[in-house]
Design a protein around this nucleic acid. Structure first.
Lengths: 227, 227
DNA sequence: ATATGTGAACCATTTCACAGCA
DNA sequence: TGCTGTGAAATGGTTCACATAT
């Protein structure tokens, strides 16, 4: 039984909550932006205002990856960005293949937010011959039957599945056989994959359904940081 | 300071973890599907296999909303679906307005997964005059300046923001002034909104970045249910 | 015998408090 | 003094175990 993201993730050096990773990736992106605006040094308190996360939480999250700050001073931005990049595995450009060039797939191929974390979509795949050979947002579309061949050439780090629910498991199997180790799945189904494969689900209906529940039956009280 | 989803949500009757709500919405969708296939009664163990969540967790989640099962028997599917629908606030059709008819916006307007939880997008809005007046996936597109007027007529329950990051806060302000109580935000920025507004963020870059971290530096160990 | 519902135990994350360094 | 890094405490979600109903 393959299974979705655990609540805690361990590397050689550290073991940290999945929620911390989420926050750290966001810190990285937003802190890099701050650096690009010319800022030099920041404290966890300054970051707290910017990111909407408590200073304690920020320090704890950062401490999972190393010691990047100077007591009494704060964090040197250049240094912090470089270290986060390194520790998060974002220091060299990563590639993703996208399977399913429908409306959502096309939107993802053109989504320029991935660039901010040094990830780019290197190829698209679809079963529809009419789409094969086209170039969308600068990315070429191939037939699904050529995934394995393309993966040998492009060496993508992860795959994004944006096909209809009924086709998702089959695509997942193909992708796994092609040597991919991480899958971002937009299809509203539970994918079965070997334990060594990381599967992360983005379920748009569930997100919208949760929000509706909160806004209809929830009493708005104290709010709090999360995704 | 407006703020993203708390970790716990309280209604008149109950107070439950946000993660439970996520799971419950998913239960609802998948259990309804099971019912439509003709199944009559299920146990939490059966559902566990189907949903990839422990039977204990399922019973606990369901118990937050009420008592829907019969000891020694299981859950009557018709009854369970009806109750979940009711308690989750999904029993009557809900409407969402979508702001930002770019590639992602168009994909969301055509996303038919929302139908499974009785939510439909009732109008699209954009600042681009070329898009105004067009009909995408059966939904008409209006100019952003007409949001308030349209909201008075359409009474949407929630708004979906799919505009570029730089425009998101302004759109958020407009939407809040129009009386919307829940916002699903796809822009990678922290929105500022009054405390009585629920804001849920879907950050595609962060999701992909997390996955990359896990698949590059994470040691694949025991897996576990989540989003 | 079988399966639910739930209080209690357990465990992980967040928050707190402070030692230590600039 | 100001701020980081981190053990320790507190918080809260998940798992366990069992009383209860069929």
């Amino acid at each position: 039984m393959g299974w979705p993201m655990p609540k805690r993730v361990c590397s050689e050096k550290a073991c940290l909550p999945a929620e911390s990773i989420r926050r750290l990736v966001r810190y990285y992106r937003d802190i890099k932006h701050l650096r690009d605006e010319g800022e030099k040094v920041v404290s966890s308190f300054f970051l707290s205002d910017m990111l909407g996360v408590s200073p304690d939480q920020i320090r704890k999250d950062l401490s999972y990856l190393g010691e990047f700050g100077k007591p009494g001073v704060g964090y040197d931005l250049d240094n912090l960005v470089k270290n986060l990049e390194e520790r998060l595995g974002l220091s060299q450009p990563a590639g993703a293949v996208l399977i399913g060039v429908g409306r959502l797939g096309m939107a993802l191929m053109g989504y320029d937010g991935f660039r901010n974390i040094n990830i780019s979509i290197v190829a698209g795949f679809d079963i529809d011959e009419a789409k094969v050979g086209s170039v969308i947002s600068g990315v070429e579309v191939y037939h699904i039957r050529n995934i394995s061949k393309a993966c040998r050439r492009l060496k993508p780090d992860v795959a994004i599945i944006a096909v209809p629910a009924r086709a998702a498991q089959e695509v997942c199997d193909i992708v796994v056989r092609s040597g991919i180790k991480g899958i971002l799945n937009f299809a509203p189904v539970r994918l079965s994959a070997p334990n060594c494969i990381w599967v992360s689900n983005v379920d748009l209906s569930v997100e919208l359904g949760c929000l509706l529940f909160c806004s209809k039956v929830g009493k708005s009280g104290e709010k709090d940081a999360s995704s």
